[in-house]
Measured scan of single mutants.
Amino acid sequence: EMEYEEITLERGNSGLGFSIAGGTDNPHIGDDPSIFITKIIPGGAAAQDGRLRVNDSILFVNEVDVREVTHSAAVEALKEAGSIVRLYVMRRKP
């Protein structure tokens, strides 16, 4: 069973403070093209906020749908998102 969360982060000097993997051209798990959080960087915006978790998958960055995009398109969406970034994420319920 999945749960969904909308997380708004303010981009810090060091960016959003997380790493991603995945994409249609580089699936992270099997042939699932989802964009997954692979690392939360200590002291970064995501770590300070505390809600984003490793293995969360990002569905939307602001209004941009990143469910079926290449890795570089997801990176671009995050880069272009401005200083306030709304992430709509999905994760397995614990």
Rank of each mutant, 00 (worst) to 15 (best):
E1H: 13
M2L: 02
Y4I: 01
Y4P: 03
Y4E: 10
E5H: 13
E6L: 01
E6Y: 15
I7L: 13
I7W: 01
I7P: 00
L9E: 00
L9Q: 02
E10N: 08
R11A: 09
R11H: 05
R11T: 08
N13L: 06
S14N: 02
G15Q: 14
G15E: 08
L16V: 13
F18Y: 06
F18T: 04
S19R: 15
A21C: 07
A21K: 07
A21Y: 06
T24K: 04
T24F: 05
D25M: 12
N26K: 12
P27R: 12
P27C: 11
P27A: 06
H28L: 05
G30S: 12
D31H: 09
D32R: 08
D32I: 09
P33T: 10
S34E: 04
F36G: 09
K39V: 14
K39F: 07
K39L: 10
I40S: 01
I40C: 06
P42D: 14
G44F: 15
G44Y: 12
A45K: 04
A47Y: 14
Q48E: 06
Q48T: 10
D49N: 11
D49L: 05
D49A: 09
G50L: 11
G50M: 11
R51D: 06
R51W: 06
L52Q: 01
R53Y: 02
V54Q: 06
N55I: 11
S57W: 03
I58P: 02
I58Y: 00
V61I: 10
E63Q: 10
E63C: 11
V66N: 03
V66W: 04
V66R: 01
R67A: 15
V69Q: 10
V69L: 04
V69G: 09
T70K: 15
S72L: 08
S72G: 07
A73N: 12
A73Q: 10
A74D: 00
A74H: 01
A74I: 07
A77K: 10
L78I: 07
I84D: 12
I84W: 12
I84Q: 14
V85R: 01
V85N: 01
R86I: 15
R86L: 07
L87T: 03
Y88H: 06
V89L: 14
V89Y: 09
R91N: 11
R91C: 14
K93F: 02
P94R: 02
P94N: 13
